[in-house]
Simulated scan of single mutants.
Amino acid sequence: MSDILIRPLEEKDHADWKRLWTNYLIFYKASVSEEVYATTWERLIGEGEFEPNGFLAFIDGRAVGLVHYIYHRSCWSLVNNCYLQDLFADASTRGKGVGSKLIKAVQDEAGKLGIKNVYWMTKEDNAVARSLYDKVATRTGFIEYDLL
């Protein structure tokens, strides 16, 4: 397998980003409006301490994975936390290091700001992702609740 290149999202990545994020949403049987796509993209490439950020993963020049992450304040620390919101790798590349490299890129970027707490969640039945997460992070035992 070729080397995996990870780099921050750039304006020129819109089509690759949209393709990957669409596939991520399909995986989770979800969808968003075109307005949400457009607003999310603008936020990802915009500036601001609390705007979302993202990286793409490339193999042989082809975008094969993405991650979105957001910094936010905490009542438990003087420095922000980092929420890894979305992580996706093309099905053809799963198990080949794309996800772990994207997670590491977020961890390294957060570390530049003194942020040690990078966290995320996944569906309980997402066995493939959980097998990676169990190798790279500690499961906290917290259960999520949503007011929808």
Results as ranks from 00 to 15, higher is better:
Ser77Thr: 13
Lys101Trp: 07
Leu147Lys: 15
Trp120Gly: 06
Gly46Ser: 10
Thr40Ile: 02
Gly65Trp: 14
Met121Phe: 03
Tyr83Ile: 14
Ser74Leu: 11
Ala91Ser: 11
Ile115Trp: 11
Gly48Ile: 12
Val32Tyr: 09
Phe50Gly: 02
Asp16Leu: 09
Trp21His: 05
Ile103Thr: 08
Glu144Pro: 01
Arg94Glu: 02
Arg139Val: 04
Leu44Asn: 03
Ser77Glu: 10
Glu124Gln: 13
Ser74Phe: 13
Val118Asn: 05
Val106Pro: 09
Ile115Ala: 06
Tyr133Ile: 07
Glu42Thr: 15
Val67Tyr: 02
Gln85Gly: 07
Val136Ile: 11
Trp41Met: 14
Ala137Lys: 01
Ala57Asp: 09
Glu109Tyr: 14
Gln85His: 02
Glu35Gln: 05
Ala127Phe: 11
Gln85Trp: 10
Asn53Tyr: 00
Val79Ala: 07
Val98Lys: 02
Arg7Cys: 01
Thr140Gly: 01
Ile143Met: 10
Ala30Val: 02
Glu47Gln: 14
Ile4Glu: 13
Lys123Trp: 14
Thr138Tyr: 11
Ser31Ala: 03
Arg19Gln: 05
Thr122His: 00
Val36Gln: 01
Tyr119Met: 07
Ser33Cys: 02
Leu113Met: 09
Val64Ser: 01
Phe142Pro: 01
Lys104Tyr: 08
Leu9Asp: 04
Ala127Gln: 04
Asn81Pro: 04
Tyr28Lys: 11
Arg19Lys: 13
Ile59Pro: 10
Phe55Pro: 04
Leu84Ala: 07
Tyr24Pro: 00
Arg62Pro: 08
Ala110Glu: 06
Ala15Leu: 14
Val64Trp: 11
Ser31Phe: 05
Ile6Phe: 09
Leu147Ser: 08
Asp134Cys: 12
Leu84Trp: 04
Leu148Glu: 04
Tyr37Arg: 00
Trp41His: 13
Thr140Val: 04
Lys116Arg: 06
Gly111Asn: 07
Val128Arg: 14
Arg130Asn: 12
Lys123Gly: 15
Ala57Thr: 05
Thr122Pro: 03
Asp108Ala: 06
Thr39Pro: 06
Ser77Phe: 04
Asn81Thr: 12
Asp13Cys: 03
Ala105Glu: 09
Gly141Ser: 00
Gln107Trp: 09
Tyr83Met: 12
Val136Gln: 02
Lys29Leu: 03
Ala91Asp: 12
Ala137Asp: 05
Leu147Met: 10
Ile143Pro: 00
Glu10Phe: 15
Asn53Asp: 01
Leu148Met: 07
Tyr83His: 12
Ser33Asn: 03
Asp146Gln: 09
Phe88Asp: 08
Cys75Gln: 08
Lys104Arg: 13
Ser31Pro: 03
Leu132Ser: 05
Thr22Tyr: 05
Asp108Asn: 13
Ser74His: 04
Asn53Val: 07
Ala129Pro: 00
Ser77Trp: 06
Lys123Cys: 12
Asp3Arg: 08
Ala137Pro: 02
Phe88Lys: 13
Lys101Asn: 15
Thr140His: 03
Ser131Asn: 15
Lys116Trp: 14
Leu5Ile: 06
Asp86Gln: 12
Arg62Ile: 14
Thr93Pro: 06
Glu51Val: 10
Lys12Val: 10
